[in-house]
């Protein structure tokens, strides 16, 4: 079996969320895999400021809404990271967290390289407003450009039960 420099197939797991559906599934997958493999775990929450800008350009938002919602999403991100830190701690796992802002796939790719992650876990990222937008296909871009393996966590029967039985 191929091994990384650390001698383990998976030694650093990066969790990515932008507030899309399935955030908790991403966290549970990560915590379970960290428990099984002993890998370090880090979660980043990316405030999707690109989507807010797209909505403002499409005139769905006025500028003041864009600013307000960016601030609220930052607060949501902090809350989410706090929640999953506690979730991980409940299973004896230490979780490092970071709140970031920008274009989701670009930030994720940058973090994979900086932190030298060897597995990225993501939810089902929503595309941008139109095909012309840089972030139209966040998921596709990540799958193509990430230098590590990528796991797309979906709502899966049995995940919650498995998580609950984890000691």
């Amino acid at each position: 079996m191929p091994k990384t420099q650390s001698g383990r197939l998976i030694s650093k797991i990066l969790l990515l969320t932008d507030g899309s559906e399935g955030c908790i599934s991403v966290a549970k997958y990560g915590i379970i895999l960290s428990k099984i493999t002993g890998a370090d775990l880090k979660a980043i929450y990316v405030v999707n400021t690109e989507l807010l800008k797209q909505l403002e350009r499409a005139r769905i938002f006025v500028k003041i809404e864009e600013v307000d919602y960016e601030s609220d999403l930052e607060d949501d991100g902090q809350d989410y990271l706090q929640d999953i830190t506690e979730l991980a701690a409940s299973k004896g796992i230490h979780l490092e967290t970071e709140l970031l802002k920008g274009i989701v796939h670009k930030i994720a790719i940058q973090k994979i390289e900086e932190w030298e992650a060897d597995l990225l876990i993501i939810g089902e990222l929503e595309p941008g407003l139109s095909r012309q937008d840089i972030s139209h296909d966040e998921l596709g871009l990540l799958l193509r450009k990430a230098r590590c393996s990528v796991l797309v966590a979906k709502e899966q029967r049995g995940l919650d039960e498995l998580f609950e039985t984890l000691t």
Partner: peptide, 11 residues
Amino acid sequence: ALTSTYVQALA
């Protein structure tokens, strides 16, 4: 409390 869901529904 549902800012993220709200933004994504609009999009």
